[in-house]
Design a binder for these strands. Structure first.
Lengths: 129, 129
DNA sequence: TCCGAAGGTTACCTAGAGGTACCTGATAGC
DNA sequence: GCTATCAGGTACCTCTAGGTAACCTTCGGA
Protein backbone atom coordinates (compact mmCIF):
# COMPACT_ATOMS: atom_id res chain seq x y z
CA UNK A 1 0.00 0.00 0.00
CA UNK A 2 3.09 2.26 0.08
CA UNK A 3 1.98 4.86 2.64
CA UNK A 4 4.12 7.75 1.64
CA UNK A 5 3.28 10.07 4.52
CA UNK A 6 1.77 13.45 3.75
CA UNK A 7 0.57 12.29 0.41
CA UNK A 8 -1.42 9.37 1.55
CA UNK A 9 -4.67 10.97 2.61
CA UNK A 10 -6.36 8.29 0.65
CA UNK A 11 -4.16 5.33 1.33
CA UNK A 12 -5.94 4.61 4.62
CA UNK A 13 -8.73 6.26 2.94
CA UNK A 14 -12.04 6.96 4.55
CA UNK A 15 -13.36 8.00 1.17
CA UNK A 16 -12.48 4.64 -0.33
CA UNK A 17 -14.20 2.78 2.47
CA UNK A 18 -17.28 4.91 2.04
CA UNK A 19 -17.28 4.17 -1.65
CA UNK A 20 -16.79 0.47 -1.13
CA UNK A 21 -20.00 0.40 0.86
CA UNK A 22 -22.02 2.86 -1.08
CA UNK A 23 -20.81 2.64 -4.61
CA UNK A 24 -23.11 -0.01 -5.88
CA UNK A 25 -25.95 1.51 -7.83
CA UNK A 26 -28.54 0.39 -5.32
CA UNK A 27 -26.92 0.46 -1.89
CA UNK A 28 -27.73 4.05 -1.14
CA UNK A 29 -31.20 3.73 -2.54
CA UNK A 30 -31.85 0.76 -0.30
CA UNK A 31 -30.42 2.40 2.77
CA UNK A 32 -32.41 5.53 2.04
CA UNK A 33 -35.60 3.53 1.71
CA UNK A 34 -34.98 1.93 5.09
CA UNK A 35 -34.53 5.22 6.93
CA UNK A 36 -38.30 5.41 7.34
CA UNK A 37 -38.48 2.09 9.14
CA UNK A 38 -38.39 -1.64 8.47
CA UNK A 39 -39.51 -2.84 5.08
CA UNK A 40 -40.18 -6.19 3.49
CA UNK A 41 -38.43 -7.53 0.43
CA UNK A 42 -41.38 -6.89 -1.83
CA UNK A 43 -41.90 -3.38 -0.51
CA UNK A 44 -38.29 -2.54 -1.19
CA UNK A 45 -38.61 -3.76 -4.76
CA UNK A 46 -41.61 -1.52 -5.31
CA UNK A 47 -40.09 1.51 -3.61
CA UNK A 48 -36.81 1.31 -5.40
CA UNK A 49 -38.39 1.78 -8.78
CA UNK A 50 -36.47 -0.66 -10.90
CA UNK A 51 -34.27 -2.93 -8.84
CA UNK A 52 -34.65 -6.60 -9.65
CA UNK A 53 -35.37 -9.02 -6.84
CA UNK A 54 -32.10 -10.81 -7.33
CA UNK A 55 -30.05 -7.63 -7.13
CA UNK A 56 -32.00 -6.42 -4.12
CA UNK A 57 -31.15 -9.63 -2.34
CA UNK A 58 -27.47 -9.23 -3.23
CA UNK A 59 -27.50 -5.64 -2.07
CA UNK A 60 -29.15 -6.48 1.22
CA UNK A 61 -26.67 -9.32 1.82
CA UNK A 62 -23.78 -6.95 1.26
CA UNK A 63 -25.22 -4.34 3.59
CA UNK A 64 -25.86 -7.06 6.15
CA UNK A 65 -22.28 -8.25 5.84
CA UNK A 66 -21.12 -4.72 6.60
CA UNK A 67 -23.34 -4.48 9.65
CA UNK A 68 -25.58 -1.76 8.26
CA UNK A 69 -28.78 -3.72 7.82
CA UNK A 70 -30.57 -6.34 9.88
CA UNK A 71 -32.73 -9.16 8.60
CA UNK A 72 -35.70 -10.43 10.57
CA UNK A 73 -37.34 -13.58 9.22
CA UNK A 74 -40.68 -14.74 10.62
CA UNK A 75 -41.59 -18.41 10.41
CA UNK A 76 -44.92 -17.91 8.72
CA UNK A 77 -46.43 -18.94 5.48
CA UNK A 78 -46.05 -17.29 3.14
CA UNK A 79 -42.75 -16.24 4.64
CA UNK A 80 -42.30 -12.73 5.94
CA UNK A 81 -38.93 -11.06 6.11
CA UNK A 82 -38.26 -7.55 7.34
CA UNK A 83 -35.16 -5.50 6.83
CA UNK A 84 -34.16 -2.58 9.01
CA UNK A 85 -31.17 -0.40 9.69
CA UNK A 86 -28.84 -1.38 12.49
CA UNK A 87 -27.52 1.26 14.88
CA UNK A 88 -24.49 1.46 12.66
CA UNK A 89 -26.66 1.81 9.61
CA UNK A 90 -28.57 4.61 11.24
CA UNK A 91 -25.36 6.62 11.52
CA UNK A 92 -25.46 6.80 7.73
CA UNK A 93 -28.86 8.45 7.69
CA UNK A 94 -27.54 11.98 7.86
CA UNK A 95 -24.93 11.69 5.09
CA UNK A 96 -27.46 9.99 2.86
CA UNK A 97 -30.05 12.62 3.55
CA UNK A 98 -27.53 15.28 2.55
CA UNK A 99 -26.69 13.51 -0.68
CA UNK A 100 -30.28 13.04 -1.72
CA UNK A 101 -31.05 16.62 -0.75
CA UNK A 102 -28.15 17.69 -2.93
CA UNK A 103 -29.51 15.63 -5.80
CA UNK A 104 -32.95 17.13 -5.36
CA UNK A 105 -31.58 20.66 -5.39
CA UNK A 106 -28.94 20.31 -8.06
CA UNK A 107 -30.09 17.41 -10.15
CA UNK A 108 -31.75 19.63 -12.68
CA UNK A 109 -28.62 21.71 -13.11
CA UNK A 110 -26.58 18.58 -13.75
CA UNK A 111 -29.01 17.22 -16.30
CA UNK A 112 -29.24 20.59 -18.01
CA UNK A 113 -25.47 20.87 -18.21
CA UNK A 114 -25.11 17.35 -19.50
CA UNK A 115 -27.64 17.89 -22.26
CA UNK A 116 -26.12 21.22 -23.27
CA UNK A 117 -22.70 19.60 -23.47
CA UNK A 118 -24.05 16.76 -25.58
CA UNK A 119 -25.78 19.18 -27.91
CA UNK A 120 -22.57 21.18 -28.26
CA UNK A 121 -20.62 18.05 -29.07
CA UNK A 122 -23.15 16.95 -31.65
CA UNK A 123 -23.15 20.41 -33.17
CA UNK A 124 -19.39 20.65 -33.43
CA UNK A 125 -19.25 17.23 -35.04
CA UNK A 126 -21.81 18.27 -37.63
CA UNK A 127 -19.97 21.46 -38.39
CA UNK A 128 -16.37 20.34 -38.39
CA UNK A 129 -16.81 17.21 -40.48
CA UNK B 1 -43.71 12.73 -12.25
CA UNK B 2 -45.90 10.13 -10.56
CA UNK B 3 -45.27 11.21 -7.01
CA UNK B 4 -47.40 8.65 -5.29
CA UNK B 5 -46.82 10.30 -2.00
CA UNK B 6 -44.85 8.16 0.34
CA UNK B 7 -44.10 5.56 -2.26
CA UNK B 8 -42.51 7.04 -5.29
CA UNK B 9 -39.54 8.69 -3.74
CA UNK B 10 -37.44 6.85 -6.24
CA UNK B 11 -39.47 7.09 -9.40
CA UNK B 12 -37.93 10.46 -10.33
CA UNK B 13 -35.28 9.54 -8.01
CA UNK B 14 -32.77 12.00 -6.63
CA UNK B 15 -30.97 9.11 -5.02
CA UNK B 16 -30.46 7.43 -8.37
CA UNK B 17 -29.11 10.62 -9.89
CA UNK B 18 -26.73 11.03 -7.00
CA UNK B 19 -25.56 7.47 -7.43
CA UNK B 20 -25.12 7.85 -11.14
CA UNK B 21 -22.66 10.65 -10.50
CA UNK B 22 -20.98 9.36 -7.44
CA UNK B 23 -21.09 5.62 -7.64
CA UNK B 24 -17.92 5.03 -9.54
CA UNK B 25 -15.18 3.94 -7.23
CA UNK B 26 -13.10 7.04 -7.82
CA UNK B 27 -15.54 9.89 -8.43
CA UNK B 28 -15.95 10.80 -4.79
CA UNK B 29 -12.28 10.41 -4.11
CA UNK B 30 -11.48 12.74 -6.96
CA UNK B 31 -14.06 15.31 -5.95
CA UNK B 32 -12.86 15.12 -2.37
CA UNK B 33 -9.28 15.70 -3.45
CA UNK B 34 -10.33 18.78 -5.40
CA UNK B 35 -12.12 20.42 -2.49
CA UNK B 36 -8.79 21.88 -1.34
CA UNK B 37 -8.22 23.66 -4.63
CA UNK B 38 -7.11 22.99 -8.19
CA UNK B 39 -4.84 20.05 -8.79
CA UNK B 40 -2.88 18.71 -11.72
CA UNK B 41 -3.36 15.33 -13.27
CA UNK B 42 -0.19 13.96 -11.73
CA UNK B 43 -1.01 15.35 -8.31
CA UNK B 44 -4.39 13.67 -8.40
CA UNK B 45 -2.81 10.36 -9.26
CA UNK B 46 -0.47 10.61 -6.30
CA UNK B 47 -3.12 11.84 -3.88
CA UNK B 48 -5.64 9.20 -4.78
CA UNK B 49 -3.39 6.38 -3.72
CA UNK B 50 -3.94 3.84 -6.42
CA UNK B 51 -5.95 5.24 -9.31
CA UNK B 52 -4.40 4.60 -12.70
CA UNK B 53 -3.86 7.50 -15.05
CA UNK B 54 -6.31 6.11 -17.53
CA UNK B 55 -9.08 5.74 -15.00
CA UNK B 56 -8.38 9.16 -13.55
CA UNK B 57 -8.79 10.64 -17.01
CA UNK B 58 -12.06 8.77 -17.48
CA UNK B 59 -13.31 9.89 -14.11
CA UNK B 60 -12.41 13.51 -14.74
CA UNK B 61 -14.08 13.42 -18.15
CA UNK B 62 -17.27 12.08 -16.61
CA UNK B 63 -17.24 14.71 -13.89
CA UNK B 64 -16.59 17.34 -16.53
CA UNK B 65 -19.50 16.07 -18.60
CA UNK B 66 -21.73 16.47 -15.56
CA UNK B 67 -20.55 20.01 -14.97
CA UNK B 68 -18.86 19.29 -11.67
CA UNK B 69 -15.24 19.73 -12.69
CA UNK B 70 -13.41 22.20 -14.89
CA UNK B 71 -10.31 21.57 -16.93
CA UNK B 72 -7.76 24.31 -17.51
CA UNK B 73 -5.00 23.48 -19.98
CA UNK B 74 -2.00 25.79 -20.28
CA UNK B 75 -0.05 25.91 -23.54
CA UNK B 76 3.34 25.25 -22.01
CA UNK B 77 5.95 22.58 -22.35
CA UNK B 78 5.74 20.18 -20.76
CA UNK B 79 1.97 20.66 -20.77
CA UNK B 80 0.24 21.75 -17.61
CA UNK B 81 -3.40 20.93 -16.93
CA UNK B 82 -5.31 21.91 -13.84
CA UNK B 83 -8.61 20.53 -12.65
CA UNK B 84 -10.89 22.35 -10.27
CA UNK B 85 -14.44 22.19 -8.99
CA UNK B 86 -17.06 24.25 -10.77
CA UNK B 87 -19.63 26.19 -8.75
CA UNK B 88 -21.91 23.22 -9.19
CA UNK B 89 -19.19 20.88 -8.05
CA UNK B 90 -18.62 22.97 -5.00
CA UNK B 91 -22.21 22.37 -3.93
CA UNK B 92 -21.17 18.74 -3.45
CA UNK B 93 -18.45 19.62 -0.96
CA UNK B 94 -20.69 19.41 2.07
CA UNK B 95 -22.29 16.04 1.31
CA UNK B 96 -18.89 14.60 0.50
CA UNK B 97 -17.40 15.98 3.67
CA UNK B 98 -20.20 14.33 5.63
CA UNK B 99 -19.66 10.99 3.95
CA UNK B 100 -15.93 10.97 4.53
CA UNK B 101 -16.46 12.12 8.09
CA UNK B 102 -18.86 9.22 8.52
CA UNK B 103 -16.28 6.83 7.10
CA UNK B 104 -13.61 8.19 9.41
CA UNK B 105 -15.84 7.79 12.45
CA UNK B 106 -17.49 4.50 11.61
CA UNK B 107 -15.07 2.81 9.27
CA UNK B 108 -13.48 0.83 12.03
CA UNK B 109 -16.84 -0.46 13.24
CA UNK B 110 -17.70 -1.62 9.75
CA UNK B 111 -14.41 -3.40 9.27
CA UNK B 112 -14.65 -4.99 12.70
CA UNK B 113 -18.14 -6.23 12.00
CA UNK B 114 -17.20 -7.55 8.60
CA UNK B 115 -14.26 -9.50 9.98
CA UNK B 116 -16.30 -10.91 12.85
CA UNK B 117 -18.98 -12.04 10.42
CA UNK B 118 -16.42 -13.69 8.19
CA UNK B 119 -14.83 -15.45 11.13
CA UNK B 120 -18.24 -16.68 12.25
CA UNK B 121 -19.01 -17.98 8.78
CA UNK B 122 -15.67 -19.74 8.56
CA UNK B 123 -16.18 -21.24 12.01
CA UNK B 124 -19.64 -22.52 11.28
CA UNK B 125 -18.46 -24.09 8.05
CA UNK B 126 -15.68 -25.88 9.87
CA UNK B 127 -18.03 -27.16 12.50
CA UNK B 128 -21.05 -28.13 10.49
CA UNK B 129 -19.27 -29.98 7.70
C1' DT C 1 20.53 12.83 -31.20
C1' DC C 2 18.38 10.81 -27.71
C1' DC C 3 16.05 11.24 -23.08
C1' DG C 4 12.75 12.57 -19.78
C1' DA C 5 8.58 14.99 -18.13
C1' DA C 6 3.55 15.85 -18.51
C1' DG C 7 -0.77 14.49 -19.96
C1' DG C 8 -2.72 12.06 -22.42
C1' DT C 9 -4.80 7.88 -25.90
C1' DT C 10 -5.32 3.14 -27.46
C1' DA C 11 -5.69 -1.94 -27.34
C1' DC C 12 -6.60 -5.61 -24.60
C1' DC C 13 -8.11 -8.17 -20.45
C1' DT C 14 -10.80 -9.43 -16.09
C1' DA C 15 -14.13 -9.18 -12.49
C1' DG C 16 -18.31 -8.23 -11.07
C1' DA C 17 -22.69 -5.52 -11.26
C1' DG C 18 -26.94 -6.05 -12.92
C1' DG C 19 -30.64 -8.28 -15.68
C1' DT C 20 -34.04 -12.31 -17.26
C1' DA C 21 -36.00 -16.58 -16.69
C1' DC C 22 -37.05 -20.30 -14.15
C1' DC C 23 -36.70 -23.27 -9.88
C1' DT C 24 -37.97 -24.28 -4.62
C1' DG C 25 -41.03 -24.83 -0.48
C1' DA C 26 -44.68 -24.05 2.73
C1' DT C 27 -49.37 -22.72 3.01
C1' DA C 28 -54.00 -20.79 1.90
C1' DG C 29 -57.97 -20.49 -1.16
C1' DC C 30 -60.80 -22.44 -4.86
C1' DG D 1 -55.62 -31.34 -7.15
C1' DC D 2 -54.49 -26.63 -9.00
C1' DT D 3 -52.96 -22.22 -8.27
C1' DA D 4 -51.26 -18.07 -6.04
C1' DT D 5 -48.15 -15.74 -2.57
C1' DC D 6 -43.59 -14.53 -0.62
C1' DA D 7 -38.76 -14.72 -0.35
C1' DG D 8 -35.60 -16.34 -2.10
C1' DG D 9 -31.76 -19.45 -5.14
C1' DT D 10 -29.54 -20.65 -9.66
C1' DA D 11 -28.11 -20.55 -14.43
C1' DC D 12 -26.94 -17.79 -17.82
C1' DC D 13 -26.19 -13.50 -20.27
C1' DT D 14 -24.38 -8.65 -21.16
C1' DC D 15 -22.06 -4.42 -20.18
C1' DT D 16 -18.91 -1.58 -18.11
C1' DA D 17 -15.56 -0.12 -14.54
C1' DG D 18 -11.16 -0.66 -13.73
C1' DG D 19 -6.45 -2.33 -14.62
C1' DT D 20 -1.87 -3.07 -17.52
C1' DA D 21 1.07 -1.92 -21.00
C1' DA D 22 2.41 0.44 -24.83
C1' DC D 23 2.42 4.49 -27.70
C1' DC D 24 2.12 9.72 -28.84
C1' DT D 25 3.41 14.78 -28.56
C1' DT D 26 6.04 18.81 -27.32
C1' DC D 27 9.75 20.82 -25.45
C1' DG D 28 14.21 21.66 -22.96
C1' DG D 29 18.58 19.74 -21.74
C1' DA D 30 22.88 16.54 -21.80
Amino acid sequence: MSLRPGIAFLADCPALLAMEIIASKWSMVTLFALTDGPLRHGELVELSGGISRKVLTQTLRRLQANGLVERQAYAEAPPRVEYSLTDLGRTLEEPIRMLTAWARENGEAVVTFREAAQAARAGSVNRTV
